[in-house]
Amino acid sequence: MRLVVLIIAAVLVVGAGLAIIRSMWGMRAPLARGATSGTETLWLVLPLLMSVALVAWTAWVMP
């Protein structure tokens, strides 16, 4: 049961995370205020990398 829930969580987090990066990445060009920079990319990718790492960590500690 816990494995099934973990797989569902992983699909949701990774799937939506990739969709966020894809949608925000595509919108970088018409950015109205301020230029896109490496820092902006970091802010976009970092939280989602953390979420994926959390899923992996959960799999590691799962009873």
């Binding site: 816990r2 973990l6 949701l12 987090v13 939506a16 959960t58």
Partner: peptide, 17 residues
Amino acid sequence: LWSVVMFGTTLLPYAAG
């Protein structure tokens, strides 16, 4: 999209015990 990430994340504590 962030609501989906949030919902998925809230499932993790159950997977963790």
